[in-house]
Design a binder for these strands. Structure first.
Lengths: 355, 355
DNA sequence: TTGTAGGCGTTATCAT
DNA sequence: ATGATAACGCCTACAA
């Protein structure tokens, strides 16, 4: 614990200069002679000077920190999205402040508030499943803080957004299942108050309708996103002797739960039952049978979000019309749903590499 | 974009009070009458006042942000450690600023420097594998900023540390392999300039020695931590016909790479070759055969680190003697190494649940 | 119980 | 090319 940190004043005194000169020299202002700049730099190094960003930001009315809010850090999807964000942010001189909500609304509000109080310059966020109200987000927008929503879209809010074409992904997957001969396709959904999940659900429904396959209300299970929920529902299905041809889950994790339960119960996958997920989490390529799923290009999503945010921050054109970036997920077909003999009605284009 | 944000002065003017009164009222100072406090609170809400943390921190010379530096966010180990940290930090009014180094030294230095400049109040960090010098860390310590090192220990630096007993974990694993009848046990290590990895390596060597099993220099492969490196080395082993009895990898990921290569090449696991990893990443329980590995209790590690940091920050007793927390990893025995018939020399205590 | 004044470290404006 | 001064928004002696 040293008494006090070196400031530009200390440097100024040491060199018999004024603080403003030192400040300018440190900022490489052309108004200061090269010789002086050199002297100042040396003295700064000698005195171990470290700029105080708090003071800088206070004075300038803006800082260099971007806040990121995600539901969970330990999802491949989000950690890779963050990697994408970082790859764009790192070369700039912005810093990342990350906060995870654990899908909880209160935590989300608190985190966002803290970002506002800290006068962060921009925010990238993905809404928690627990979030049903959007006042806190609209507030940030009204406050004039650049904000980009990502993955969990929110049609009502007029703000930049980056997300997957969930409808299309879901549609493609369902079509694939139908092509493989599955007819009774049960759907594991997330909470339907999130557009993300209604879109996925609608894509599934549309594909069924387009193939003239009837839909039964009991085919839909909501809030089945985790492995344990997937296991629960799978056990219920087995116990009630309500065995589906296939399960399409809006989450790889619940798909995994179902796959394990059915496999343990002795069902042949993909023979008796097909199972597909959503997100292409790394484990989907490692289990057996490997799981059919949808690649969401999370890293690219993150990069896009970061780029959009920086755009907003630099060209602070007030509240222009919001921009949207939509990324179409890619169908990754693997063993858990592939049962049509090769060369028959199998669509070669659908077959992707398995990691 | 509104013209300017509300400050305590605005509230003061509105209520014909002084700014200091408002400040005190907002901070619930008993020196201000309850009635005034109430009035101030209302006015603040009405004017949509948000405290400026930059100014607060500048004035107080300290803030409420804790920095976390990890090599990779997308490792189960680190994302769970962060969850642990958060579970301790969230109830306080500190915030987390997270930075990932991608195992790169330069990024680590830059991140740490940025933390110092932002006057963060405390730092929890795990050193990048690319880091060989420690000056930047010692600097932070000398600067008087509370710092806790975690997972990647650094014996030379006098600072609080939380880490696994890597020697013991590695020793246990090697013993287990020997008990299973494996003799030629090849070792995939991380870079040996990190104590973490020398400790693991030494545990392995000690177990071999204690069982009077000779060690050959070609059994050691360094810098084999990723899946792709694991695959590379496995292919080299097969090509050179240098087939081991078992592989013990200091990383689940390189173990995975080897497992896949040997499995694809038609080797029976655990029959012809046993494979074990380190970290208990979720996929280890999902692949087949499921992988034997070591649980590191990352969440607990994170919690301990956060607790130690807060301790240091609150009771800022200068530079007291550093504290250490050591957590012993737990052996998780699964199919990839288990081949001794039950009831023979198999040690029941070693058999743990498979998640 | 409240007000006044000064300063945290920096930078922008205006002068010299 | 450099200096003096004020201000960013808040807090805290000290004074009243």
């Amino acid at each position: 614990m040293q008494p006090r940190k070196t400031t530009i004043h200390d440097i100024a005194i040491r060199l018999s200069l004024s603080a403003s000169t030192v400040s300018r020299a440190l900022n490489n202002s052309p108004r200061i002679s090269l010789k002086t700049r050199e002297k100042v730099r040396n003295a700064a190094a000698e005195l171990n000077y470290k700029p105080n960003h708090l003071a800088m930001n206070l004075r300038k009315g803006k800082g260099t920190t971007i806040g990121v809010i995600v539901p969970r850090l330990n999802r491949h999807f989000f950690s890779h999205a963050i990697s994408g964000i970082e790859s764009v942010i790192n070369p700039t001189n912005y810093n990342l402040m990350i906060c995870q909500t654990n899908e909880d609304y209160e935590t989300e509000v608190k985190g966002l508030q803290s970002f506002v109080n800290h006068r962060l310059d921009g925010i990238i966020m993905s809404i928690a499943t627990g979030t049903k109200k959007t006042g806190h987000i609209e507030y940030v927008v009204k406050e004039g803080i650049p904000l980009v929503l990502f993955d969990r879209m929110m049609g009502k809010i007029s703000v930049d957004q980056v997300f997957n074409d969930n409808f299309a992904g879901s549609y493609d997957m369902t079509k694939h299942l139908i092509e493989q001969g599955y007819r009774k396709i049960i759907y594991f959904s997330g909470p339907l108050h999130l557009e993300l999940y209604t879109d996925r659900y609608n894509g599934y429904r549309k594909a069924l309708a387009d193939s003239s396959i009837g839909f039964e209300n009991e085919w839909l299970f909501t809030d089945v996103l985790t492995q344990s929920r997937g296991e629960e529902v799978a056990k219920i299905l087995i116990k009630s002797d309500n065995i589906p041809d296939a399960i399409f889950a809006a989450s790889d994790f619940s798909a995994l739960g179902a796959l394990l339960v059915f496999k343990n119960a002795g069902y042949a996958i993909p023979g008796q039952i097909g199972i597909a997920g959503f997100a292409n989490e790394p484990f989907t390529g490692l289990i057996s049978p490997a799981m059919t799923t949808l690649e969401q290009y999370s890293e690219e999503l993150g990069r896009s979000a970061a780029r959009m945010l920086i755009e907003r921050m630099e060209f602070t054109t007030g509240l222009g019309a919001p921009n949207f970036v939509v990324v179409k997920p890619k169908l990754i077909v693997r063993g858990s749903t592939l049962r049509v003999p090769a060369g028959k009605e199998r669509n070669e284009e659908l077959i992707s590499e398995t990691v």
